[in-house]
Design a protein around this nucleic acid. Structure first.
Lengths: 108, 108
DNA sequence: CGAAAAGTTCTAATATATGGAAACATATTC
DNA sequence: GAATATGTTTCCATATATTAGAACTTTTCG
């Protein structure tokens, strides 16, 4: 019987693939913007992992394929709730990890 | 000199605190809904870690304190972009991790 | 290669997110 | 306890997210 966890994707994995490792100039420069862009890519990857078309995924949450395409293509201006609906239909769990970075942050 | 990473928060940590460990009925029942609710809590925690009022955080991203309050109180229907703007102002990095769960998932 | 499948983009309508400002509520300070 | 600081809710206006459906484009498959 297989492991319960089939696959884990992280945004960092996706970025490594697209931009190179942490520390390269190219990587840092796009860190913020790509965080916005790659969420849609993660939806797409999860969907393909499930071997679903956009149309089939759309049926699962009750929308047309065009909405799935829209979200996958540009997830930055999509609400958290909508994103989670999609991932729920894909039987994927999303974890948000927040990491406070050290900076000499002071309010006078 | 301090570590670069001051603190790491995960949604799971927050849920453990509110609901008990993975596996309890109470925990499972609210897994989906609370994922929607606790993102705002994470914003609030990060803000307090930075020792900022809502008003000060609002100034950082150019909105009134009432918007910060609104977002913290209900982050589920907020766009990814807005969420990330807030975390960026808090000098916090957000990681989205997607985990595909095994399920006898078939499309006939 | 051509047809079908799959994905993308557009239009227009509706629902809702975002925002300021003010009133209100609660917490903190002295 | 009173004043101040901080957070919440409401109202209203504007901007934008969501959606169906259709036309279009790209990919897949036999």
């Amino acid at each position: 019987m297989e492991n319960n966890k089939m696959r884990i994707y992280t945004l960092d994995e996706a970025k490594d693939k697209h931009l190179g490792k942490i520390g390269t100039d190219k990587r840092d420069k796009y860190e913020y913007e790509l965080r916005l862009d790659l969420l849609g890519d993660m939806i797409k990857q999860a969907r393909k992992e499930r071997q679903l078309t956009q149309s089939q995924l759309g049926e699962l949450i009750g929308v047309q394929k065009s909405q799935i395409s829209r979200i996958e293509r540009n997830a930055k201006n999509v609400t958290i709730e909508t994103i989670l609906r999609v991932f729920k239909a894909l039987k994927a769990k999303v974890n948000f990890n927040v990491e406070l970075l050290d900076g000499d942050f002071k309010i006078a």
